[in-house]
Design a protein around this nucleic acid. Structure first.
Lengths: 353, 353
DNA sequence: ACCGCTCACGTGAGCGTTCACGGAGACATT
DNA sequence: AATGTCTCCGTGAACGCTCACGTGAGCGGT
């Protein structure tokens, strides 16, 4: 039970700036005056530099602490040009894919002494555009997962060093990491086909229905099935919300129309897991009655029964590479000089397929 | 297969500042000069203000774009005092507990138009101290999950608005959210006891062994068991690394000494899940042979077989409240005026206990 | 007594914006 | 013709800090 005022703040009539009597900032000059020294001496004390008497330093530090002085990062950043902040744009923190990417970004950024500010878009077009705008004002470089073409165009058109996580089939001139979905999907589907599956359904991410981005996973599915001469019923492709629940719902829909599918190729692990869970709840045996193949290699795939077979993507590495590309860009390298970076999904056979 | 230069960067001889020929910043004055107007007019164009001829605005914007001009956030922040950044300090992005908290923080921050910069500590003492230091320079307010007393002391001693996620039993004067572990643990343990369990083991987070923070969960376990007159074998308490694997390892250790325990009260869901998985792999039936009770209410608890019974914490709300407290602090409210905030864990009975 | 050196500290300038003004010109009003 | 009122635009100042200097005191060496 928390106090009511918090609850109010969050729900109904919320007021953005609560009590606006913000204390004025204590400046370095005030500390200097109070201690009877100059700005520069205070600066020396604060930044732990030499050319200052230890006793003076102590006095200054003490006064600063007492007065509640904290150097302004703006003033400091204005004069020292080496404080770098990178913006990380992701679709959804709650999707386990992104924390892994984030871990990579955080780690690589920390090695460089960079700050990382995080933005969530929910893959909504409006939010993506908003965030891209914000990026331009607030960071020195952007590392982003964007779905909507318009947002990507805006981001790359500007003059901000910008790197795409998952650049897909975009022109080489736009920096970013390419995840080789083609190779991955091919390996996965051929694995299923080689194990004798012929009626292979696909649970696709519904977000791509509204996005202009090409959905390579679905195209690849069609392509590989075609190559192998396996006829595809168009109803085998079901859109799913990108979540466990979404996968469950889509699976149920699929099953009600096509109880005879023997395998499911899911857009990603989240959808695969939901689908598999629901299939089992509906009485199907996995993988005997229906096999499941995910895409992403989330660690939660190991938790379900049976553990999920999947195409594993090194998400951490993905984040790291993106930061490294951003560093090159920031260092003055031009977009088209950035070396190609491709991440290869690996088939991890567990037990669901 | 990504290009070798990335790999090098990450592994061995890594050089922090790669190619240092950073382009000099384009300033507003340069744009002004190029367009033949004054700074102020450029500023008006960039910030979409009035008192400017539409045609002039177009020209300025065009030139700005062409020259690669982006306003300096430092210069801007220096003069406008309303750009707020809050630092979010968490132990580990990969622990599903934190993405949920992060989601709450991100959402609340976005409502206020704040930026969020994220730091990972891994709960290491050294990293925590480092991050706290960094916080003082880089943000306007801190929202942090800290384990080590020294780091907490440093953070609260400074004059930065600072809020603890999980303030535990700390003095009311330090702002933060209290998670009522006592109430939660009590409800959980009594549930187990009421269902007839007497030999209840505890899998504890080993991180608390080195931290000075009081580990309320373990104390509560001892206390409640004592109150109910149930003798506790000290070996029933096993330290575990805070991860699924850690839970598995600890469970195996526990089982080799005490095969007769009928229930496990885990420090959190991660450890509970690992333990339960391992127990089943070792041939135990859940919950018949051994019941499992987690703490946190992670959504992945629903994925395992059987679904994990747990004490659910509203982690999203936790993050939101913390931001709201930070807002109050930032608004000038003093530490001891911040209203008490407590989050009550709810027993969610699924099937593992 | 002079030079030179070190140590501790201060001074002016400048970082790139925005804000509060002030002012010129065009046009309408008296 | 003088006055008022828009619209558009420019000019100092200020934001809070660091950097490159400059300076004076103290001290040992010749």
């Amino acid at each position: 039970m928390w106090a009511a005022r918090y609850a109010e703040g969050v729900q109904g009539g919320y007021s953005p700036n609560v009590p606006t009597n913000r204390k004025p900032r204590v400046t370095i000059d005030q500390v200097a005056q109070a201690t009877g020294v100059s700005r520069q001496t205070v600066s020396r004390a604060i930044n732990n530099k030499s050319e200052i008497d230890p006793e003076t330093r102590r006095r200054v530090l003490e006064a600063a602490q007492a007065m509640g002085y904290r150097p302004s990062r703006f003033a400091r950043g204005l004069v020292r040009q080496d404080l770098i902040t990178v913006g990380l744009v992701i679709a959804d923190v709650l999707n386990p894919f992104f924390p892994e990417v984030t871990a990579g970004v955080l780690e690589a950024a920390e090695r460089r002494g960079w700050q990382v500010v995080v933005y969530n878009t929910g893959s909504e077009r409006r939010k993506e555009l908003e965030v891209v705008d914000m990026l331009f004002d607030q960071v020195d470089a952007g590392v982003a997962f964007l779905l909507h073409h318009e947002a990507i165009a805006k981001a790359t058109a500007g003059n901000l060093p910008f790197v795409l996580l998952d650049k897909g089939g975009r022109a080489p001139a736009v920096p970013g990491v390419r995840i080789d979905f083609e190779g991955g999907a091919r390996r996965g589907l051929e694995y299923l086909i080689d194990r004798g599956h012929r009626r292979i359904a696909m649970l696709d991410d519904e977000a791509y229905l509204s996005a202009e981005a090409p959905n390579t996973r679905r195209e690849l599915y069609l392509k590989v099935m075609g190559e192998r001469g396996i006829p595809v019923d168009i109803d085998w492709i079901q859109p799913a919300h990108n979540s466990i629940d979404g996968g469950a719902v889509a699976m149920e829909r699929l099953l009600s129309a096509h109880r005879d599918v023997t395998a499911v190729f899911a857009y990603n692990d989240l959808i695969a897991i939901g689908a598999q869970l629901r299939a089992r709840a509906l009485g199907l045996r996995v993988p005997e009655d229906c096999a499941f193949l995910g895409f992403d290699g989330l660690s939660i795939g190991e938790l379900v029964e049976p553990p999920l077979t999947t195409l594993h993507i090194d998400k951490r590495r993905l984040g790291e590479i993106a930061v490294e590309q951003a560093a090159l860009l920031l260092g003055g390298m031009s977009e088209d000089e950035i070396p190609e970076a491709v991440i290869e999904p690996q088939l991890v056979v567990r037990a669901s397929a």
